[in-house]
Amino acid sequence: MATPAASAAAPLELVPSAAPEDVRRRELAGFLRSRRERISPEQVGLPAVGRRRTPGLRREEVALLAAVGVTWYTWLEQARDIQVSPQVLDAIARALLLDPNERRHLFVLAGNVDPAPAASCPTVTPSVQAIMKQLEPFPCVAVNNRYDVLGYNSTYRLLITDLDEVAPEDRNIMLLAFTHPDWKRGLVDYQQATALMVAKFRSSMADHVAEPAWKALLKRLRLASPEFDALWQQHEVGMSGNGDKRFLNPHVGLLHFDFTTLWLGPGPSTRLISYTPSDEETRDRIERLHKLATEG
């Protein structure tokens, strides 16, 4: 019998950890089984024929509903190393009656891009609106990753031009920056700001290349602005973050801010951008601008 000292000195057997792809396939297999087992045949218009050893649909029924081979679908639930197309995943998601969150999870586990992702909400909630109001007199705006303006507080309304006077369909920061004369004057570091904006937009569009709203905005920008088109053709990419920005306001003059980006969801979509004065002069001027925006 080994003594405690001898046992302590014995070499430990190293167990290799599973490869990330193996873990992902097992997660996918378990997720598919769990979704299949919660659906009754009646829910999808199938007859409940014969005794069932397990609850829910059979694998061959899911394959039938998704119009895929039974063997192929079985391999998915067995965590086999096989390739799956977005179109097949879309069919499986529909067959299993997945909600938007479950559908997104399916595509992430399969390592694929959803060809028809759930549309992002075009408005902000009352709680987010309350946050923006509470941040006054500091400017704050809510935008999606397409740069559509979804909401703003009273100070941001007058930061460059009166946003209330801009048609809702034109309230897009990129469109304003490249086509609105007040925004061209108001962005002090115009070349740097617009180049970074286009790079971020290109990065975001990689997940939305087939969506009509994204394609329509891109077409509109390329036709309306040779400056945008030239930047777009450079294929630069970038990510949203924090930094500093300067604006030349027609009412109070030069404003210098540190801006902070706060994401409002689980993925990079809707975000709040708040602007904190970088110096006392800007702080005094933003107080005056806020007063002008709220008192008229």
Rank of each mutant, 00 (worst) to 15 (best):
T161E: 12
H256F: 15
P250T: 08
I160P: 01
T270A: 14
K291F: 01
K200W: 01
E169Y: 05
L248F: 13
A193Q: 15
A213Q: 12
Q233R: 14
L163R: 04
R171H: 04
D189M: 07
R171Q: 13
G151L: 11
A167M: 09
L264K: 02
R185D: 09
V149L: 12
A195Q: 06
D164Y: 07
D164I: 01
A195N: 01
Y275M: 11
D284C: 10
L262H: 07
S225L: 00
T194S: 05
N153M: 05
K215V: 00
G186W: 02
P226T: 06
G243Q: 08
A213N: 10
R222F: 14
A193L: 05
L264H: 03
V198R: 14
A195W: 04
Q234L: 01
D148A: 06
A195M: 04
R157Q: 11
F178N: 13
L163W: 15
D258I: 10
Y156D: 06
M174E: 12
D182K: 11
R220Y: 08
F247D: 05
D189V: 04
L176Y: 01
A230Q: 15
D148K: 06
K200Y: 01
V166W: 04
A167H: 14
W232C: 04
M205Q: 12
L176V: 03
F178E: 13
T155V: 12
D258A: 11
V198E: 15
D148R: 06
H290R: 09
L264A: 06
E281R: 07
H235D: 08
L218Q: 02
E169R: 03
F178I: 05
A230P: 02
T270Y: 06
H235Y: 08
V188G: 01
L196S: 04
T260G: 10
H256S: 15
R157V: 08
D229Q: 09
S204F: 10
G241W: 05
L264V: 08
D229S: 12
R171F: 05
D189P: 03
F178Y: 15
H208E: 09
L254T: 02
F178S: 12
W232Q: 06
V252H: 04
I173E: 04
L163Y: 09
Y156E: 10
G265I: 01
K215Y: 00
S274L: 09
G243V: 14
N242Y: 10
R285D: 09
T270M: 13
F178K: 09
L272T: 00
F201D: 15
K215C: 00
L255Q: 05
D164C: 06
M205N: 07
A199P: 11
T194C: 04
G253W: 09
G267H: 10
D189L: 09
E236K: 03
S204N: 14
T282R: 12
I160H: 00
K291P: 00
G265Y: 02
E280A: 15
V188D: 02
D258S: 08
E169P: 08
I160R: 00
S204Y: 12
L231F: 13
T270C: 08
E287K: 11
A193C: 05
V149H: 00
L176Q: 02
A177N: 01
L272V: 02
